[in-house]
Simulated assay, not measured.
Amino acid sequence: MNFYEFGELNKPVIILLPGTSCHWKANFEEVIPLLEEDFHVVCASYDGFDETEKTVFPDMLTETDKIEKYINENFGGEIHAAYGCSMGGSFVGLLVQRGNIHICHAILGSSDLDQEEGLSAKCKAWMISRMISGMFRKSRLPGFMRWWIGRFPAKEQAYYKKMLDMFGVGNTRMAFVKRESIRNQFYSDLVTPIKNGISVPGTTVHIFYAVKMGKQYLERYKKHFKAPDIRRHDLQHEELLVCYPQQWADEVRNCCRIFPKNSKGKKENEQT
């Protein structure tokens, strides 16, 4: 696992955690410059998904250990914020519930937090890893998926194109990723439990709730976290991040109580 840092060290630290099978740069390259003015930005790059290493993604808990170790060794065990994109939200939940480091503002980006076990989880992981590894190897979507996306209005097609760019589909960037890493990541995310009613003193959990995903996800967030700050957006899964990066960055600042200069009624860089 690697960590890539941007911005001045004396600013509040925010760690960005990529989604399922995502390359850190494809996931966050548009928003890093938007955060650097106010944050010291750290991007995690998981085992198996960093081209500078010859590694395989092991499991969620082993990777969580590595994230905690990095935060403990480099930031004294406490950071201002963490943002988990999709599956990265599972890491945020694990980091909060384990209590080995402290996060002031824990932000989940429309994460689904799916949990399953047994044969069903293994079958899903096998199918997903087969499909995604084929997309990475060929740098394109399967024909049936291109047909399916082509049925949508232009605005929705643009959203799916942005999501595919976030995955790295359409270029050769992700051809190095092994199917085993994809399978391990997907399976481990399904079978690693997130506790219910998580509440840690001094930590606020913020949820970017994509309303178009469905009410079942709102119920899930409220089950896993006690009194989360729900931020509703009439959008699809991670659409705020991939299609509206400036609005996403503003929402992150809002969560972290970091406001731009001359913001009416707010102190510059007010933090909680």
Rank of each mutant, 00 (worst) to 15 (best):
E156C: 09
L241P: 02
F91G: 04
F91H: 12
T52H: 13
W147N: 05
K223C: 06
H23N: 15
T204A: 09
I149Y: 11
P12Q: 05
Y159M: 06
P193C: 08
F144E: 13
E156M: 13
I198N: 01
C104K: 13
E63H: 03
I194T: 06
K267Q: 10
F39Q: 14
K54V: 11
D114M: 12
G93I: 03
A81Q: 01
N269M: 13
L235P: 00
D234S: 13
P201V: 01
I132V: 15
D229P: 02
N10P: 00
L17N: 01
L9D: 12
T20R: 05
S86T: 03
L34C: 03
D47H: 11
K266C: 12
D50L: 10
S263R: 12
F39C: 12
K66Q: 14
S110Q: 09
L241E: 04
V211W: 08
Y209F: 14
K54P: 02
M60E: 02
F75D: 04
N262W: 00
F39K: 13
P12D: 04
P228E: 07
G109H: 07
E78M: 00
Y70E: 01
K162P: 05
H105R: 06
C123W: 04
I194Q: 00
W148Q: 13
N262G: 10
F28Q: 08
P228K: 07
V169R: 00
E239V: 04
Y209P: 00
V41T: 14
A249S: 14
P260L: 09
K161H: 13
Y209T: 03
Y217M: 09
E219F: 00
A106S: 13
L34A: 03
D38Y: 14
R98N: 11
G84I: 02
S263L: 11
K69G: 05
H206S: 11
E270R: 08
G93W: 02
S129L: 03
K261G: 15
H23E: 09
F225R: 04
N27S: 15
L9C: 05
P201G: 08
D47N: 15
D112N: 13
G265S: 07
S111R: 04
G150S: 14
K162Y: 07
H102W: 04
V252G: 13
Q97A: 10
G99R: 11
Q115M: 13
I79F: 06
S188T: 06
S90E: 08
R231D: 12
M213P: 01
G134C: 08
H102T: 14
A154Y: 06
F176I: 05
L35D: 02
L141K: 08
I103R: 02
W126M: 12
G7F: 04
F49S: 11
E238G: 03
K124Q: 12
I32V: 15
E238V: 15
R98F: 07
V13Q: 02
S111A: 15
K226M: 10
T192K: 10
I107Q: 08
T20A: 12
P33A: 07
T64M: 10
H105Y: 10
R140F: 02
C85D: 15
C256T: 11
D50W: 10
C123S: 06
I79W: 01
A249Q: 05
Q271F: 08
L113G: 05
D234G: 10
N196Q: 14
V13Y: 00
N74R: 10
H23M: 05
